[in-house]
Amino acid sequence: MFAFGRLWRRASYGVLAPPRLRGGSWAAHGYLFVAPFFIVFGIFQLYPILYSLYLSFTDWQGFGAPHLVGAANYSRLLEDPLFYKSIRNTLTIWIISIVPELVLALVLALILNERRVRGKHLFRAVYYFPNIVTPVSIGVLFSLLFDWQTGAVNRAMAALHLVNQPIDWLGSPLLSQVLVAAVMCWQWFGYNMLLYTAGLQSIPQELYEAARVDGATAVQTALRVTIPLLRPVIIFTVITSIIGGMQIFDVPYLLSGAGPDNSTLTIVMYLYNTAFQNSHYGYASTIAYATFVLIAVLSLVTFRLTRSREG
């Protein structure tokens, strides 16, 4: 109903315009201009998504016609220990990386907003750079650097007398998860820092002046003025990091593969292996839909939690 009212108001612009501009003849071009998006989205995204839903109810293995098997894939999924393990791994890696990542991003955004800090642009650029480097290259690079016998990291730590024995980073389930998480953090803190910087720059300067007049210290100003006003941006970064973090693939796939005892088998890695290594396309579609539900639930919970605090 609201939408109709708005449409009516928009349509009346045409009446108010000069005679030659009136009527739908030019306004209808809008449909033509936005049509390519909807056609291409329909073919390459929407149809595949719906077709995957259909496949998730079949036992299709890549040849012949798919056979409907009802909800068999879904009940198999609920009893699949490897699927649960991939969810646990993905969540663990996400949680280990997200806390330091966002704290670091926020602290850096605050520091680099200070007038007395020099070389701001250079620091911002250097912190952001890992985010645009090809993730595959980052995965290969870190797998070479952290190799326990031949990698530069163990060699440097031995030279600095930090360790006696080389650490077998990729041989221990926990350490390999921590390593993947550390690389995710390294890749993304600069990006989130830029988002927080943008948020900081939109806070009116008068609020800071008022805080200074009231004699607030820098830390008090940060906690009482800045962070509450940054909340929308913080919520945004948490939700986008859930959507991205649940889908990590490139870096762990090349850094550690499935890892010792499948400890870095992420959800998308499991999906990829199931579909494109083992040709279980039907079951892989089920995994894709379960992941979608997981992401939707986590995003909704985050949204609800952050909103209820407001009330």
Binding site: F37, F41, I43, F44, Q45, L46, Y47, P48, I49, L50, Y51, S52, Y54, L55, I243, M246, Q247, F249, V268, L271, A275, F276, Y281, A284, S285, A288, Y289, T291, F292, I295, S299
Partner: peptide, 19 residues
């Protein structure tokens, strides 16, 4: 259009391959 941004990229990947 905005809502499509929320769709995870891997959701339709099997169907995409098949298409």
């Amino acid at each position: 259009v905005l809502a499509t941004m929320m769709i995870p990229g891997q959701l339709g990947i099997v169907g995409f391959f098949n298409l």
